[in-house]
């Protein structure tokens, strides 16, 4: 039994404990920016009854997913091409590494000027946040192809295309999947930031409105929702990764 092992439900105890401590401390603080756990859960419960909340959640999720998909569709072929060509790899390495570490929030004002507070603005920013980490991972994946595998295929008279299909692509796949995992977290974060900082549509914007209005129980309720969404998305991506890249680490 999985539940027989304390290791498997330790997280539940620590979570319960944290909520309890929060409750005890916040009740005694009696300060507006620190509402008690019970107040937050009441606010959360009320929020879940509104259509507005589910609309926000849907928009945030849509922005993250559409941006993620566009980013991956652009990044994978680019990364593969760069990885396959020594000249392209060497000449773009610095630029890509440079762009990869620029937080999307830096270019936010620029994109905001271009599109205004529209969904286009949010998606563009998510694409920016996703693109470079996936390109770089795909590039490394291609370059990680085992030379022994390539020799083996060559000895069987495999064409360049066959080597790409049977050796290079499968070898790059685990790297692309890792890049996608990183990118998925980034996509969710950026889709929230676009609302929070740039007044784009979605949960981030609602959170920012609640904050400005001084509705602190709602602010924390949103934070709880964001945390849960993040965990669920990560679990989903990890599960997909495990199914597709079943040979990882073998």
């Amino acid at each position: 039994m999985r539940f027989a092992n304390p290791k498997n439900w330790l997280w539940l105890i620590s979570l319960g404990g944290s909520i309890l401590i929060w409750q005890l401390v916040s009740v005694n603080l009696n300060d507006r920016p620190f509402p008690s756990a019970s107040k937050i859960s009441n606010a959360l419960w009320a929020m879940l009854q509104t259509g507005e909340f589910w609309g926000d959640l849907g928009v945030t999720f849509l922005i993250a997913m559409v941006g993620l998909i566009i980013g991956i569709v652009l990044a994978v072929p680019l990364g593969l091409l760069v990885g396959l060509n020594e000249f392209a790899f060497r000449s773009t390495k610095f630029i890509l590494d440079f762009l990869k570490v620029i937080p999307p929030i830096v270019v936010l004002p620029l994109v905001l000027l271009m599109f205004g507070t529209t969904i286009k603005f949010s998606i563009t920013l998510v694409v920016f946040g996703v693109l470079f980490s996936v390109i770089v991972q795909a590039t490394y994946g291609v370059r990680d192809t085992d030379p022994v595998l390539l020799d083996t295929l060559s000895a069987f008279n495999a064409s360049k295309y066959a080597r790409l299909k049977y050796a290079v692509l499968p070898s790059a796949l685990p790297f692309i999947a890792t890049g996608t995992k990183i990118a998925t977290s980034a996509a969710v974060i950026v889709s929230i930031v676009t609302g929070l900082v740039g007044s784009g549509p979605g949960l981030g914007h609602s959170l920012s409105v609640a904050e400005t209005g001084g509705n602190f129980p709602n602010v924390y309720a949103y934070v709880v929702v964001l945390g849960v969404v993040g965990i669920l998305v990560n679990m989903l991506v990890s599960a997909i990764d495990k199914r597709i890249i079943f040979w990882r680490g073998k």
Partner: peptide, 11 residues
Amino acid sequence: LQEYTRSLMPW
């Protein structure tokens, strides 16, 4: 080849 782990495709 000697390196069977590398010449066979794990996928």
